[in-house]
């Protein structure tokens, strides 16, 4: 596998983005009109670390994640990925994005392309790899997610879990230095969630830097080096997974976790 972990640090054309990259977010603000979604977020992910973002819906976790590859542009604050200043107005966004893989809740596979083409199109069009090389890499990554035999299928012939695994293979085929996961299992049937999480565990074990928005507390507890609990656009609590999920200090974290971990238990609504 030619993942980030094996790549030697390069300079120049890669803008300090080759190899596992760290992420530093500093004082990030994002508003939509008068609605302030992120109210000064600071956060860091060390190279090779897995950081899970947890919190109630509407807490700004997905927005934060989407700011990292500039799908959303923050109004204030700074984000660096490796040595690359993402928030620099002069930054070459496309160059940064080819090193940052993104996996969406709704998969967003390209329905007009085959599974293999989904994994090769950006390699060929963006990285300018030749077609044979791109296909070799795509097949290796499809094999890695256990879908080598689905290369010629179209996305609409696959289950949700299979589509999400293809989406991961598509991102990996770009040899990313950082992977962003935006609730990757939230749209899946319960029985396919495990396959996707297993692949993410493998990736983490191989040293991929990962920033994961998730509601899978078990995954966060087992895999994350750090868990960040967000609510109302701020980081309420962060720390080692065992501490934040196992023994949260903040009342808001405690109440969120008790609701998520014991969904059957009746709770007074929090309004």
């Amino acid at each position: 596998m030619s993942t980030a972990s094996s790549a030697a640090p390069q300079s120049g054309s890669d803008d300090g983005l080759a190899g596992a990259a760290s992420v530093v977010i500093d004082g990030l603000h994002k508003s939509y009109g008068s609605l302030e979604v992120l109210k000064g977020i600071s956060l860091s992910v060390e190279a090779g670390q897995v950081v899970c973002l947890i919190g109630p819906s509407g807490s700004g976790k997905s927005t934060l994640l989407r700011c990292v590859n500039l799908l959303e542009r923050p109004q204030q604050g700074r984000i660096t990925v490796g040595d690359f200043d993402v928030t620099d107005p002069e930054a070459d966004v496309d160059r940064m994005r080819r090193h940052v893989g993104m996996v969406f809740q709704q998969f967003n596979l390209f329905p007009h392309l085959s599974v293999l083409e989904n994994c090769t199109v950006a390699q060929v069009k963006v990285l300018k790899r030749d077609k044979a090389e791109a296909e070799r890499i795509a097949r290796a990554n499809l094999g890695r997610v256990g879908l080598a035999e689905k290369s010629d299928s179209h996305p609409d012939q696959l289950s949700g879990g299979q589509q999400q695994r293809v989406a991961i293979a598509r991102a990996l085929s770009m040899d990313p230095s950082l992977m962003l996961f935006d609730e990757p299992t939230s749209a899946l049937d319960p029985e396919t969630v495990g396959d996707v999480l297993a692949i993410m565990r493998d990736l983490a074990a191989e040293g991929m830097t990962m920033l994961v928005v998730t509601h899978e507390m078990e995954f966060a507890r087992d895999v994350a080096d750090k868990v960040v609990f967000m609510d109302g656009g701020v980081v309420v609590e962060e720390g080692p997974a065992a501490q934040v999920i196992g023994a949260p200090k903040e009342p808001r974290t405690q109440s969120f976790l008790s609701r998520v971990l014991n969904p059957t238990q009746v709770q007074a609504p929090e309004h």
Binding site: N69, L71, D94, R95, R97, R98, H99, V100, G101, M102, F104, Q106, N108, L109, F110, P111, H112, V121, A122, K125, V126, L127, R170, A171, M174
Partner: peptide, 27 residues
Amino acid sequence: VPKGQYEAARSLGMSHARAMVTIVIPQ
């Protein structure tokens, strides 16, 4: 064409024009 298609294309490093020509317009 769902917005996610364009976002996925841009996330893979495609420029606006490339994302339109290769991903959005064919659909």
